[in-house]
Design a protein around this nucleic acid. Structure first.
Lengths: 182, 182
DNA sequence: TGTAGCATGTAAGCCGTTACATGATTGA
DNA sequence: TCAATCATGTAACGGCTTACATGCTACA
């Protein structure tokens, strides 16, 4: 029922709800999971934010926190609660999803193309193509790890979405480069 | 030289540098211009942010502000300075563009597809397709306004980029929907 | 006469980042 | 023994949004 959660909170909650049998994760592990999934479609929250979000969720009883002491080292593990799962499901079904927000520095620069020499603009676009190649390789690795297991059907679909997006960007930018003057 | 500008500051500065002969715009007009261009690739800053950014830029002498008094009504017009143009150009050429940031609520929901019934998930994807259609129509209108005038060659390229992106999203999501169970 | 749009701001607050601080464990 | 990685936080701050306040102008 708690309305005041940010989308990133729900995203982290979702990562905790990933495994069939509820697993408990440390903030550190959760961050790693975010870097393999969320990063491509949402954000990669800073470690500090992961910890503070987890504590907030714990305060709302959407996750339980258990302090462990392995040897002399303390660590906290978090696990989604039934209430947390319910909250997450009701968010998924009740709320309407906003249109995606895109912050595209390369497109922004192209918009101001008239201010710099065309060769320079071509260089910027080439940089973006290179970045795309690297990103695609990273995501492709994730996709390979997922395979075609039924359990990760949805993550695999989202990964394919991302790969399709990167391919489309590559195609579009390549075409645009041919329209640059000079 | 001033390093401390945000990308949004540069974006607004860029909008002020759009016309061949430096025009002066009010905050209100600048916001409208942003809604026709920046919105699709960067952000649509809130009015309050537009005003505060403009004042900051004025403080750095990157724009000049002139107060006008039409009748009993005061309004401020802003114009880019030579220093502002130089700063903008040096940002364009010297800085490396970050990889785009995508916040994609629909993809985030698909990631957690296993938590809700497939019909519900299909509904969410259909909602996104509808949003895409509307957005595409908006951008298409902008693109039509631009035509093929040499003066707006770059904005036209960016608009085509956006249209290509929306088309690619539509294609990808349509295919993904067929992979949903049930 | 009243409502929609034009126009300009201030204040509060959230989200998220960077920088900083601290310490344990693993392995080269 | 030193560096990398694991692990957990706090503090400060920036960017951006929402809510609020104000008043004019055009027009139905």
């Amino acid at each position: 029922m708690s309305q005041g959660l940010s989308t990133t909170s729900y995203a982290l909650l979702g990562l905790l709800a990933f495994d069939g049998a509820p697993t408990s994760l440390t903030g550190y592990e959760l961050k790693q999971r975010a870097d393999r999934t969320l990063r491509f479609y949402w954000v990669s929250p800073a470690m500090s934010q992961v910890y503070s979000e987890l504590e907030r969720l714990a305060g709302l009883d959407l996750v339980t926190a258990s302090s462990e002491q392995t040897g002399r080292r303390k660590s906290r593990r978090y696990q989604i609660t039934p209430a947390g799962l319910e909250e997450l499901q009701s968010w998924l079904t009740s709320s309407t999803a906003d249109f995606p927000t895109l912050k595209h520095p390369a497109a922004l620069r192209l918009l101001m193309g008239h201010l710099i020499p065309p060769e320079r603009m071509r260089g910027l676009m080439q940089d973006y193509l290179d970045q795309l190649t690297r990103r695609r390789a990273e995501l492709s690795e994730v996709r390979t790890m997922l395979g075609d297991r039924e359990a990760v059907r949805y993550p695999a679909m989202v990964a394919d979405w991302g790969l399709g997006y990167y391919d489309s960007e590559t195609r579009i930018v390549t075409e645009l480069m041919q329209r640059l003057p000079g």
